[in-house]
Design a protein around this nucleic acid. Structure first.
Lengths: 123, 123
DNA sequence: GAAATCAGGTTTCAAAATTATACCAAGGAG
DNA sequence: CTCCTTGGTATAATTTTGAAACCTGATTTC
């Protein structure tokens, strides 16, 4: 079990995983989909500012990594639903923790930015 | 307390924070620095594959956001130490959880990729 | 005294990724 | 016939990234 994966090593496979997770759109998608399946255009509408291409590409990568499943329903017009896989579900808390942290510490970050910009800008 | 921050909203300030955190280099730096202060070149050597520019820029952003502190020691030659701020320290577990997840579920992701590539490539 | 070394960066420029925009297919509504 | 829906892809413009060179300032080596 104790494989010698080292995320600091350049060619460690965990770097690929980190790359997938260290992505704004991937995190937002994973978080958005955690309560149940969602259609492509629904995600696009909910995640404000994402481009169709970014959504399409990110979903494809998440699907390839086994985090999200893609189901085509032969309705008219076809609808495609994306959902967390069991593997993806194990990430729920982690992803939520990041979004949560952002919301909880927003003020502190904003204050730090103000202090930094104020001190540095006067030089 | 219950501010109406919504990370799905395009111009919500939490998006900025997510942007900072959803970055491979930022996460690796935060995780690398969690046990104590580190010098610039030490980080550069430890985090394999990071360019000097990426390290410098990422550190500057983390400093601006109040997550990392920068201390110049007037030694010869000067050394600069980067450390977690108290605010940055509140992120330790979250960041570690991501790295941890990557290491723990690496095999599953690799398997999913193989399955995906195998099924899709034959068409 | 010229050259090389260390630390911690910045600058430069080309390559890669991201974004906005347009387009496509298949069917239904008006 | 024209427009709207779904779920994309193709193309072009913009932005970000990465590799490599350069810079400052002080010290040691030849």
């Amino acid at each position: 079990m104790a494989y010698i994966y080292d995320i600091y090593e350049e060619n460690c496979p965990t770097r690929q995983v980190l790359d997938r997770l260290a992505d704004k759109w991937a995190l937002l998608i994973l978080d958005r989909v955690k309560h149940g399946p969602m259609r492509f255009n629904h995600l696009k509408r909910d995640i404000r500012g994402i481009s169709q291409k970014a959504l399409s590409q990110t979903l494809k990568k998440l699907e390839r990594d086994g985090l999200v499943s893609r189901t085509v329903h032969p309705t008219i017009p076809v609808t495609v639903e994306y959902a967390l896989t069991p593997l993806g579900a194990t990430l729920k808390e982690t992803v939520a923790a990041i979004a949560h942290w952002a919301e909880r510490h927003m003020e502190a970050v904003l204050d730090a930015q103000k202090a930094y910009d104020g001190a540095g800008g006067e030089r």
